[in-house]
Amino acid sequence: MKMKSQSSRQYRGERLQALTVRQARFIDAIAGRILPATDAPGAVEAGAVFYIDRALAGPYPHLLSRYTRGLRALDKHAKRQFGASFEKLGDEQQDSALGDLESGKIAELPNGEAFFELLRTHVLEGVFGEPSYGGNKDMIGWKLVGFPGQQWGYPETYINKAVDLPPITWEGLPKKPGQS
């Protein structure tokens, strides 16, 4: 039994700490619309869902119930509008359902705008934040926008010139704060 509940929390090769697999899959579907994969990878590839999972398991456990309620309402709205679960909808229908959430048009969810804002913020933090918080896998987010990460410093100020340094994290720095 124990084994089973452990393995039932496996998602994309990682163990979830706060979300259920169903919720994780749902959040991935949303993340894929908030920052979609194009020619370049997006929020799904960056593993934003793992950032959210760690945030809910760590400092923000009280937000888990907001997620549960919000996701349920969004799914219900998808079924009512389009006759299928959110995850099963095409891109355009998903965008339209998310747009309804963003503008507070989901009846069961008073203050749906705030839940959308939370989702958007969390997904983007999961793409652009430091990888040690669970997201931004392989520094995908930083490569997308051209941010070289937590460099120790820069030899020059690169005026009107692209910075050609590969991104780096604090953990990967040859020197750490406090050492000079």
Partner: peptide, 10 residues
């Protein structure tokens, strides 16, 4: 959010 946002930020 969405593709338009991504292209803008990139």
């Amino acid at each position: 959010w969405g593709k338009e946002y991504k292209e803008y930020f990139m």
